[in-house]
Design a protein around this nucleic acid. Sequence first.
DNA 1: TTCAAAAGTTGAGTGGTTGCACTTTTGAAC
DNA 2: GTTCAAAAGTGCAACCACTCAACTTTTGAA
Lengths: 191, 191
Amino acid sequence: MTELGRRERKKLQTRQSISDAATRLFLERGFDEVGVKEIADTADVSVTTLFKHFPSKEALVFDEDEAQESALVAAVRNRGGRSIPMALRDHFVQAARGHADHPQFEIFQRLVVETPALREYGHRMWTRHQDALARAIAEEAGVPADDVRCAALARFALEARDVIFERDDRERAADEVFGLLEHGWAADQQT
Amino acid sequence: MTELGRRERKKLQTRQSISDAATRLFLERGFDEVGVKEIADTADVSVTTLFKHFPSKEALVFDEDEAQESALVAAVRNRGGRSIPMALRDHFVQAARGHADHPQFEIFQRLVVETPALREYGHRMWTRHQDALARAIAEEAGVPADDVRCAALARFALEARDVIFERDDRERAADEVFGLLEHGWAADQQT
DNA sequence: TTCAAAAGTTGAGTGGTTGCACTTTTGAAC
DNA sequence: GTTCAAAAGTGCAACCACTCAACTTTTGAA
């Protein structure tokens, strides 16, 4: 739709080449074994330019983000007859299945899991969605937007992902963890 | 009980003077406005020595830690007739009340809340208790130590603290949030 | 054609953190 | 008491992520 001028295209191109260089080097030798200087050199830009495009070294790894939030909200919004916790459970399970196909994603995810700084950064980015999710839940449940239980459910659901992820049988884990949330949620709230 | 030799006493003393200098300067001018160099100078030690006692600048602020975990576990262990979630709720509420008395703690807590780096570090330290708490819960509930629901409940309870903390009426918030956990927990588990 | 904003560069600097080589202290064994 | 090795502490240089200020180049649009 939107025609991008030469300027914007070049900018995106620079950003992309930085991102590409970074992910390649990180996957080759590990996050901590590569300096920003080397990434900048590989992408043929200055370090200053690199930091004009990405706010931190960790940000070089997490390039997406925007789609996740809307997917999360959408999962709650059009959930058919299911309860909100169950809709979120299905969303996570399905997302995990989708990733399981691409082996490239496995490698990427191992990089994140094995690097404390990345784990943390990723988790922080992930929990940024709490407010948006809480608002969506509140709206669907027909309660005030700042309801505590909605905030709690949103936070718990987001945290549940990590709890589930480190289990062998993730699908079963998802059932149990979200089962807990569902019963608690259903107890004094009609959804 | 344990007689400390002159050596250990001196070491603790050095550590203490570093910690004291740090907290004093931080409270006076803010975390980001004080450099480690200045702290070291104030405590009359070298920067290298400072980092031999504390692993990072943030660690200078969180000096306790050990008592929290045992208190958490104890709250679950000897909970009388209450359910585990309710015991945790009471523990948090009581801890909050205890802190509310000392105005010194308010200032300290504002420092943490207002400094992103400290917020994050504090949260990371806090969630380190997840495993210990999960094990205690599992043992009390009579299920295998690596039960997913126990891990989830532990994680959720720890996260609940932050959710509750940023509300105006914390006691009411605690009731609602832990009420959610309690109903979910009670649903398919007799405690 | 002109102009101002945006992209990029360079280089110097900050601040936390580590490694190394060195001195001093101290607990304990002889 | 002397001796010795480990532990505590020092000073310095360096690394790394990140920032700032001043400057050049590019480019979209008036």
